[in-house]
Design a protein around this nucleic acid. Structure first.
Length: 819
RNA sequence: GCGGAUGUGGCGGAAUUGGCAGACGCGCUAGAUUCAGGUUCUAGUUCUCGCAAGGGAGUGGAGGUUCAAGUCCUCUCAUCCGCACCA
């Protein structure tokens, strides 16, 4: 017979435990997804990281959430695909090459190795056999292949246009990469508009579908992301209408959503960059226009004073035949609609401001449905709502909505316009004048023009070890062995495209490659995609709401139309984790508040890091990293470890009341943790529940019988598995059980055992808590009322008062209302 | 300006369905134990009045609905995020 302290308590040595298990997991295929499994599949994915070299604890959160889910789902019997890879192309590698003379390839490889080591040290359950690295020619050849397919279908095209240029990056940016007029990477570098020839992908072809199929995502994607995408796509229905010049000349086409107000148009306004401006202005005005464009560029976005120049020319309103002046206005955008508008000051706020400023007449033509037409002379503000048309020729008396339909139909019929839909989203410019990216597989031949690289010649391999200065045009231009080729058509001398692709191309489809990462004849086998897709849970930062998340939706639709896949959306559920905050700010090098992962792991251990990141706040909210908080998580794991090790195989008292209590707490905890996984992912409350269980265990340690203790210790390890896998595994082994823990089913809770024995019923007098009684569940209302009224303390409070009403909520509360 | 989110102790947060506000953790206070060490254990910790029993107030603010409001409604303030001349 053992004494109660037979098993000595061991102290929790996180390093020793974690290194031991990490070593055992290293070369095994434990976390590999199964092919041809009969289990239901679950694809959980965290956004692939850029291999910057060092993970810090700000990166950890996303992986801790994903890994908890992956481990839980495995235990629930799913065939889980949980892969990891590297978004390995991009500017930092090139900048490192310039600054430290490190070869981008070597630099990237080195970083990947280090970050992979960090991932392994954290014990994340990735299937590393599916690792994808985007700078690997076997990966990016498929970027090129997709590009060729798009080129064939007219979804990729080359165009000279005004593009966003970041001087700091030395390259062009897509519209999505411009934030508040500045580069998304260099927040204080305003982008310049430059006219450059570049390659575009026709994302606008899918604008309507990208918008409409959001309906499928509403259940599983954050409303915030969908809203941002909806705004970004910016669909707007209206009409295009031609205003002819007077005297005759090239007509000015305007886009308007309010053709019903056209009888109130009192001028036409062109964007300063509008092509007709040159035709309509003299030398003096041209200089003014240039000044206008420069002033706006200098100011950046945001508030600019409205400014206008009268061209001296007039246009004719095709409906009223009235002659109205043509102006140039700095607030009219060349990049939206047709770059020209009709100004209806009476019914548009901006037009009102402009016309007031320049004394242009105001002509009300819409009255409120239940009001009268405004008087132009006394008008203080525009009336932008729909209403009833007046002073609008044959259309007077129509409601706005009907008028729009009738009037745009007339324009189409008589060939001076048409109903039109305009989008804010523009085609995706993918050319980058940089080195470290996927070469665009195109050849320029003097004779044949633009010639796509034949599929059989893919991949066009990016030459390694070249000189990068960061000056001038794309570094590839200085590599003759790359640039000079024979034309695939005529075999004459030709040059390769020297631009590379935006790295968002790489990340637009990488998650498909995980399903078939070593396929050398196709990007993937469609059958494998059919099994794994769509992604069941995608996890990543909100910063990609209109970047990666819109590009990858587009790419999915393109691949579907190429017949490669059958799903129309990449992921059914999306989750945006909250940021990690340190000392009141987001972690960043410039603020000097970065805590490196290695430092954290050395100090606390991987399990502690995970548990604290999940415990400190719900996963979608910001969380504050504090060392004292992390220390608390360490203390919890340490208490669990010591408790379990000292209670294994101990002789314990005979079964008694404590057994019942602790089993109840155990099953309540199981229920709580299970529910958190199944519904809202509030792992902070799951971990709090585990802590409560631990507190309860400690307080009744000496009263729990051996079989009950064994059950509690077993289930404790199972429940810890998603949050602190190293500790779970260690405790499992200490108990003499066969691992690994995640191959065991998630423990079911027993609702009967979890149920409290008695209901605690609160007694209130006038809504104030005055006492509590304990009764059997289901005690009838009348009994409860009687018990409450009979309560000694209640009696004294009722003295001299009149009971007006008694509210009884069975098993919960009795409220006595007195006067 | 428009749209959205959030506001709870000294701090992070809990309260999932209108029914005990403050679970859990940090920090702090007191005590015990042990000290070469991230101690461990016990008790306490919303504010306030009171020696205490006990009372009062309390979820950004002001109203309201209700027997009952952190939770629902109206207004308002603050912070954060997104959009911002998109015709």
């Amino acid at each position: 017979m053992h004494s109660p302290d037979a098993m000595p308590e061991k102290s929790y040595d996180a390093q020793q435990i974690e290194l031991k298990w990490s070593d055992r997991w290293k070369n095994s295929a434990l976390f590999q997804a199964e092919e041809n499994s009969s289990k239901p599949k679950f694809y959980v994915l965290e956004m692939l990281p850029y291999p910057s070299g060092q993970l810090h604890i700000g990166h950890l959160r996303n992986y801790a959430i994903g890994d908890a889910l992956a481990r839980y789902k495995r235990m629930r019997g799913f065939n889980v695909l949980h892969p990891m890879g590297w978004d390995a192309f991009g500017l930092p590698a090139e900048n490192a090459a310039i600054a430290n003379k490190r070869d981008p390839y070597e630099w990237t490889r080195f970083n990947i190795e280090n970050m992979k080591r960090q991932h392994r040290r954290m014990g994340f359950s990735y299937d590393w056999s599916r690792e994808v690295t985007t700078c690997d020619p076997e990966y990016y050849r498929w970027n090129q292949w997709f590009f060729l397919k798009m080129l064939e279908r007219g979804l990729a095209y080359r165009k000279r246009s005004l593009v966003n240029w970041c001087d700091e990056c030395g390259t062009v940016l897509a519209n999505e990469q411009v934030v508040d007029g500045c580069c998304w990477r260099h927040e204080s570098t305003p982008v310049e508009q430059r006219a450059i020839e570049q390659w575009f992908l026709r994302i606008t072809h899918y604008a309507d579908e990208l918008l409409n199929s959001m309906a499928e995502l509403e259940a599983g994607w954050p409303e915030r992301v969908l809203l941002m995408q909806r705004n970004w796509i910016g669909r707007s229905e209206g009409a295009e209408i031609d205003f002819h010049l007077d005297p005759a000349g090239t007509p000015i086409r305007v886009f308007t959503t309010r053709v019903d107000t056209i009888y109130g148009a009192t001028c036409v306004i062109l964007a300063p960059e509008h092509p007709l401006v040159a035709e309509l202005t003299g030398a003096a005005a041209k200089a003014e226009v240039k000044r206008m464009i420069d002033a706006r560029a200098a100011k950046g976005p945001g508030d600019i004073e409205k400014e206008g120049i009268f061209t001296g020319h007039y246009a004719v309103n095709p409906y009223s035949n009235g002659k109205i002046p043509i102006w140039i206005g700095n607030f009219v955008l060349m990049g939206y609609g047709t770059g020209a508008i009709m100004a209806v000051p009476a019914h548009d706020e901006r037009d009102f401001e402009f016309c007031k400023q320049y004394g242009i007449p105001i002509r009300p033509v819409i009255r409120p449905v239940d009001g009268t037409l405004a008087d132009a002379a006394t008008l203080k503000e525009s009336f932008p709502d729909d209403g009833i048309l007046e002073n609008s020729g044959p259309y007077s008396g129509l409601a706005s909505e009907e008028a729009r339909r009738v009037m745009s139909a007339k324009a189409e019929k008589e060939n001076f316009g048409k109903p039109a839909v305009t989008f804010r989203i523009k085609d995706w410019g993918i050319s980058r004048q940089r080195y470290w990216g996927t070469p665009i597989p195109v050849i320029y031949c003097e004779k044949c023009g633009i010639v796509p690289v034949p599929e059989k010649d893919l991949p066009v391999v990016l030459p390694l070890s070249i000189a990068i200065t960061g000056k001038g045009r794309s570094p590839l231009e200085n590599v003759p062995e790359f640039m000079n080729v024979k034309c695939p058509k005529c075999s004459g001398p030709a040059r390769r495209e020297s631009d590379t692709m935006d790295t968002f191309v790489d990340s637009s489809w990488y998650f498909y490659r995980y399903c078939d990462p070593h396929n050398s004849t196709a990007p993937f086998d469609s059958k494998k995609i059919a099994y794994w897709f769509p992604i069941d849970q995608y996890i990543g930062g909100i910063e990609h709401a209109i970047l990666h998340l819109i590009y990858s939706r587009f790419w999915t639709k393109v691949m579907r139309d190429l017949g490669l896949i059958s799903n129309g959306e990449p992921a059914t559920r999306m989750f945006n984790q909250g940021m990690v905050i340190k000392d009141g700010a987001k972690m960043s090098k410039s603020r000097g508040n970065v805590v490196s992962l290695d430092e954290m792991v050395e100090k606390f251990g991987a399990d502690t890091g995970r548990v604290f990141e999940l415990f400190a706040a719900p996963p979608e909210k910001e969380m504050d990293w504090t060392d004292s908080g992390a220390n608390g998580a360490y203390g919890f794991l340490s208490r669990v470890y010591r408790f379990v090790t000292r209670n294994i195989g101990n002789a314990q008292p005979a079964p008694g009341e404590a057994d019942k209590k602790i089993l109840r707490k155990l099953h309540q905890t199981l229920r709580k943790v299970t529910e958190d996984f199944e519904s809202r992912w509030h792992f902070n409350t799951s971990i709090a529940a585990l802590m409560e269980l631990m507190n309860n265990l400690q307080s009744m340690e000496k009263q729990i019988s051996a079989p009950v203790m064994a059950e509690v210790l077993e289930k404790m390890a199972l429940m810890l598995e998603p949050f602190a896998p190293y500790l779970a595994e260690e405790l499992w082994e200490e108990q003499g059980r066969q691992g690994p823990v995640f191959n065991h089913p998630w423990p079911a809770y027993d609702a009967e055992l979890a149920r409290e024995e008695e209901a605690e019923v609160v007694i209130q007098v006038n809504g104030k808590l005055r006492g509590r009684i304990y009764v059997a569940f289901g005690t009838p209302r009348e009994t409860l009322e009687k018990l409450a009224l009979g309560d000694a303390k209640v009696q004294t409070l009722l003295d001299g008062k009149q009971v007006v009403k008694v509210i009884v909520v069975p098993d919960k509360l009795v409220n006595i209302v007195v006067k």
